[in-house]
Design a protein around this nucleic acid. Sequence first.
DNA 1: GCTACCTATGCAACTCGTTGCACTGCACCT
DNA 2: AGGTGCAGTGCAACGAGTTGCATAGGTAGC
Lengths: 180, 180
Amino acid sequence: MALEHAILVSLTERAGSGYELARRFDRSIGYFWPATHQQIYRVLRRMDEAGWVKHTEIAQDGRPDKKVYRVAAAGRAELSRWLAEPEDPAVLRDGLGVKLRGASLGSVDLVLKEIERHRAEHATRLEVYHGIQQRDFPKPSGLRGRELHQYLVLRGGIRAEESFVAWCDEVIEALRKDNR
Amino acid sequence: MALEHAILVSLTERAGSGYELARRFDRSIGYFWPATHQQIYRVLRRMDEAGWVKHTEIAQDGRPDKKVYRVAAAGRAELSRWLAEPEDPAVLRDGLGVKLRGASLGSVDLVLKEIERHRAEHATRLEVYHGIQQRDFPKPSGLRGRELHQYLVLRGGIRAEESFVAWCDEVIEALRKDNR
DNA sequence: GCTACCTATGCAACTCGTTGCACTGCACCT
DNA sequence: AGGTGCAGTGCAACGAGTTGCATAGGTAGC
């Protein structure tokens, strides 16, 4: 998996400029594959040179020109090649775990506060996802094909955040009990 | 959070060589913060130059010499400085989600197989964690301090894998139903 | 005897991701 | 009049992470 493929999936759904893609990543794909505008511009250029995408320059008045990218035949080929290829399982990488593990070397109270803060952060993210679910997929049982897949990805995000929040609660309770 | 801090936590628990640390990362810390031996050697050298750790060269016969690292005062200071510092929330980054989202552009059947494969992988990891839990923390209610923290980190790993497996099951069922 | 893996450290080259900055012009707020 | 924010693209530098390789003796299996 590389950023290339995430961009190809997104561009296949709908053509767009680098800037628009960066916004999209902020709002949807990026919840599962974050990327900055810098990365996106660089990869778009690379893919353009490789012939995976083509761009059309669009002059706008009052705003800078933009390049709208769309997926070319070679890009579609690459995408289906990648889709058929096995993917490495995602690895967990969480600094909070390391911090908790080292908590007794510093202030356990501060680490506890930190975990409460993360809990709040993830709870907020969870609410955002729930909002998307209610707005975009009010009746999930009727979903099929592409929409079903999008819904299921969102479900993954919801489950991940739920389980993170539940873990925080377990940790907070246990640390408080240990503190008394 | 940087690899530096994960290594400092690990070295504080017990001194060791770069090689040993790499093994440790493979077996425990690395479940939550993966690192290769290359990264570890490089960071150890940097920390040595910065005075955060000190090494003692140990000659062995039949085997190459090794450098055993232990945390120095400056390292302990850095560790507690970092522990008191706020940490960015972990971001989800999963290529499988992108693949599922693009499934309809390739073979949905292949993506389904891929998800089944990942499910098996994560189920195996979950069993490993359960094994560690039973071996190292048979009676969690009595845990305090450092051991409690280690247990709670493990609980985080267990919860993450459980929720991943449950998500896979939801996806597999939904895709099968959609296929009929 | 050959292959392969383990212990142990490390270089070199590369890709990926992050951060700070630059330029343009419009819209909005104070 | 001045600051902030949005739209739009991009460079330059750095740090993090990956991959392939080198070295070298010991142990274990075929």
